[in-house]
Write a protein that binds this DNA or RNA. Structure first.
Length: 209
DNA sequence: ACATTAAGTGATT
DNA sequence: AATCACTTAATGT
């Protein structure tokens, strides 16, 4: 078995001492596809670093309506859990494994300590925060200013990029839930995109051209 | 063969 | 864009 953790950490540009600490104090966690990692209201005890797979980050209201926000991929840290750690400690977001995912969980108290101790870690956290913020703003834009068809197309392309595959294994119903709209609307828009030859439709599957 | 789930579509608001 | 109502197609038992 290859040391995927080592590979991931090496790509982050961190000090060797920090990497050693990371490897010593963290623990491995596997999350199966569609298994929720955290829901709003839960307390985050550790900072998840994605080693393999993808996490889907969503906003969810009390009625269970949810909106897709962005994906976390290999090498990404969950910036929102850092805000949990430094602030209220209560999650405002929902994270679900999009595929089978391997995570390296780092205790929150150490995250705080390392921010002061290691320059590279401070930069990593801030950069990661900046990246998430940018993605979040794109999503805000798409919800506020874009039509549903543009939003859908953006969602499909986003998914394509994060998974590295043009095949999307989701039902119209699932897509509708993530965009917080109705299945009928998604079906209609997908059909339109198919006529424009931007996608191809199958049962339980959408292929992006 | 029957039930269930996914997807397509017209009409209405 | 949302909802209803209905149809058709695919899949599971």
């Amino acid at each position: 078995m290859t040391d995927q953790l080592g590979v991931t950490l090496a790509g982050l540009g961190l000090e060797p001492e920090l990497i050693a600490e990371l490897e010593q104090t963290g623990r491995l966690m596997r999350v199966g596809e569609d298994v929720p990692l955290i829901s709003p209201g839960m307390r985050a005890m550790a900072l998840p670093l994605v080693i393999e797979g993808t996490l889907r980050i969503m906003r969810e209201d009390a009625e269970g309506n949810e909106i897709f926000l962005y994906y976390l991929e290999g090498g990404d840290a969950c910036a929102m859990s850092i805000s949990c750690c430094l602030g209220t400690q209560i999650s405002q977001f929902k994270a679900v494994a999009e595929t089978d995912t391997v995570l390296w969980m780092v205790p929150m108290n150490l995250v705080d300590e390392w921010m002061g101790k290691y320059r590279s870690f401070r930069k990593f956290v801030i950069d990661s925060y900046q990246q998430r913020f940018d993605e979040l703003m794109q999503t805000v834009d798409s919800i506020a200013f874009m039509n549903m068809d543009e939003r859908l197309m953006r969602y499909l392309l986003d998914k394509k990029q994060s998974s590295g595959s043009y095949v999307i294994h989701k039902t119209h119903e699932q897509i509708a839930q993530e965009l917080n709209t109705s299945r009928v609307v998604v079906s209609r828009l997908l059909k339109k995109l198919e006529r424009e030859e931007k996608v191809e439709l199958f049962r339980n599957r959408v292929e992006v051209m």
